[in-house]
Design a protein around this nucleic acid. Structure first.
Length: 575
RNA sequence: CGGGGCGUAGCGCAGCCUGGUAGCGCGUUUGCUUGGGGUGCAAAAGGUCUCGGGUUCAAAUCCCGACGCCCCGACCA
């Protein structure tokens, strides 16, 4: 390939609208261009890298026994009514009408379509297990698209779906995908590791996310340095310390706290510690109000609350509901003397809580000396707070570390949620109809590409792993006016391409400095320089982008040397 | 959806406060020069100053509104 014909336009300055390194580099190196918020064009080089990632995914999916299909992105919204997700997924879907006025959606995911498909195609246990996958564009009306390809309105996803005769069999399919994912990310040069995750709107019993550690990641991860426990903060649990024995608690006493609504204000006003406070929040759980108590220095974790209460939707109550339930303005809720009796839940760490401070359910008033067991009727003590860095691992008790990560893949055990909704059954050996058991598995392909950059770059630019680099070799012809050098470069290009090594020949009329900078910026794994001086010294210069190692190689043996170096680099990416 | 910032040449920005001929750097084109880490010199092209309305003799600049982009937050009492 010739640089001059590839439509490679690199930028000297960082784009004004990019925040994180990988986004800046993606644009500066000319791999993508923005059409509008959350919508990107892949330029020739970006597209090449993307195709490489997709190639790896295909190989590993096929190896794991999955079969590739392609489903429509445009879907009748009636399908979504059947699964009940029109309500939960609703605002996140792009919707439109066809000319007959039929409601359609641009697919944000494909559980509905695939379950409908498989339900009509598969009738017998003999056809199971069956795992299908596709690589396709997904559409999501994100609340806030950001960080380039990381959270886009339109993106490429590999989604796979497994169907099995039983839960045990489904576990095997799940494991096969889990292992395939590990191989895929390894081959892409990514350190991605699995963490326990919340299943969210997709549903199901169990799931793992594959996380790439990065400070710019949108997800929090709790991980145990000792036993390897790792979980998304939306799900992470902790070991709760035994309650400390407390001395006799004085009687409850009201105290005036005019205009003091927040924990911070209260700490300042009463000169106490946040830990001494009981924070009481009113939530709507599937529309019904409940009160949830946590220590003043803790945050309620809504996904955990939802899961533990087995609810579809959990949201903080609106002000009117709070006023109705507590009988006081927002900011003075407490466990004692609610105006309307609602279920009262408390975090586990409040078990035995005594001599605490809480809202009085009365304007501008708080209560001192609250003893939860004595003064309130707690429905249940639950694990409802977000894990923090000083918390202890639920398995081994070691202090937990909090990290940030980019979710590049997610595998789910769905159970029968969708097969039930769509009546996806098969006949077993006895001729009895049984529900199929399902799993689903996604990889954000475009996000994975950017995660590679986020994890692998330096001050000069991207450092592509060989496996996904847009081209393996940048061949720099420093002076295209030098006929001898040009001849060598052209010949090298032909020989490398003939051996299946993707090569970009920089044939531009540019200064050497420009070519060096651009090659570093785009991040080709190998840079081969053909220059007048080098040739005079006996050969071409081969430089690795990763290590910076440079060697001069005679022209005759250059191709072999390049091949050997690339093989070495590939070796490191083997699963 | 709430808060903040931004919108001027392909890209990055100045000018706006205090209204009066639209600027700089990079890139692009042409010529010369240079040829191993973003060469140097010279010339040139390129603008509905996001859009709409208002104030004014006069608006990139002041006022009102819309749109777009980016960041933070999305209710933690």
């Amino acid at each position: 390939m010739r640089w001059s014909q590839l439509l490679i336009t690199t930028l000297r300055d960082n784009p004004q609208d990019a925040e994180i390194d990988s986004h800046k580099l993606l644009v500066r190196s000319g791999l993508v261009r923005k059409l509008s918020g959350g919508l990107y064009t892949f330029m020739p080089l970006g597209n090449r890298a993307l195709q490489k990632v997709m190639g790896i995914i295909r190989e590993e999916m096929n190896r794991a026994g999955a079969r590739e299909i392609l489903m429509p992105a445009l879907q009748p919204s009636e399908l979504w009514e059947r699964s009940g997700r029109l309500a939960t997924m609703g605002p996140g879907m792009f919707r439109l009408k066809d000319r007959q006025g039929r409601l359609m959606a641009l697919g944000p995911t494909h559980e509905e379509v695939v379950t409908e498909l498989i339900s009509s195609e598969i009738n017998s246990y003999r056809q199971l297990p069956c795992t299908v996958y596709q690589i396709q564009t997904k559409f999501r009306d994100e609340i806030r698209p950001r960080f380039g390809l990381m959270r886009a309105k339109e993106f490429i996803m590999k989604d796979a779906y497994s169907f099995d005769v039983s839960f045990d069999a489904a576990d095997k399919s799940y494991l096969a995908m889990y292992e395939a994912y590990k191989r895929i990310f390894k081959r892409c040069g990514l350190a991605a590791y699995p963490v326990e995750a919340d299943t969210g709107d997709i549903g199901g019993k169990w799931s793992h996310e594959f996380m790439v550690l990065a400070d710019s990641g949108e997800d929090g991860i709790a991980s145990c340095p000792a036993c390897g426990y790792a979980a998304n903060l939306e799900r992470a649990e902790r070991k709760v310390a035994e309650p400390e024995p407390v001395a006799e608690c004085p009687a409850v006493e009201e105290t005036a706290t005019p205009g003091v609504h927040t924990i911070d204000d209260l700490v300042r006003f009463l000169k106490c510690k946040p830990k001494q406070l009981i924070k009481t929040l009113v939530y709507l759980v599937d529309g019904k109000p409940v009160a949830v108590m946590v220590p003043g220095d803790r945050d309620v974790n809504e996904p955990k609350l939802r899961r533990i209460l087995n609810a579809k939707k959990v949201e903080l109550a609106d002000d009117a509901t709070v006023v109705k339930v507590t009988g006081a303005p927002v900011g003075f809720a407490g466990p004692v003397g609610l105006a309307v009796p609602v279920p009262l839940y408390a975090d586990q760490s409040l078990q035995g809580a005594s001599d605490r401070i809480a809202g009085a359910n009365k304007a501008d008033t708080h209560l001192l000396h609250v003893d939860l067991a004595r003064d309130a009727k707690v429905e249940a003590f639950l694990d409802v707070v977000t894990v923090c860095s000083h918390d202890l691992c639920p398995h081994c008790g070691t202090p937990i570390a909090i990290k940030r990560g980019i979710e590049v893949g997610h595998v789910f055990k769905l159970g029968t949620k969708y097969t039930e909704a769509f009546g996806a059954k098969y006949l077993d050996e006895k001729g009895e109809a049984q529900l199929m058991v399902m799993g689903c598995y996604g990889i954000g392909v475009t996000r994975t590409l950017q995660a590679v950059i986020e994890q692998s770059h330096d001050a000069n630019g991207i450092i592509w792993p060989v496996s996904v680099a847009p081209a393996q070799v940048a061949l720099l012809l420093l002076d295209p006016k030098d006929p001898a050098a040009t001849e060598v470069a052209v010949k090298l290009e032909q020989e490398l391409e003939a051996r299946g090594i993707d090569t970009v020949l920089d044939d531009r009329e540019e200064r050497p400095g420009v070519k060096f900078k651009d090659a570093d910026l785009i991040g080709f794994p190998l840079r081969v320089v053909v220059g007048t001086k080098g040739l005079a010294k006996g050969g071409v210069e081969i430089k690795e982008r990763t290590s910076g190692e440079t060697k001069i190689e005679p022209v005759e043996s250059a191709v072999a040397a390049i091949e050997a170096t690339l093989a070495g680099l590939r070796q490191k990416l083997l699963p």
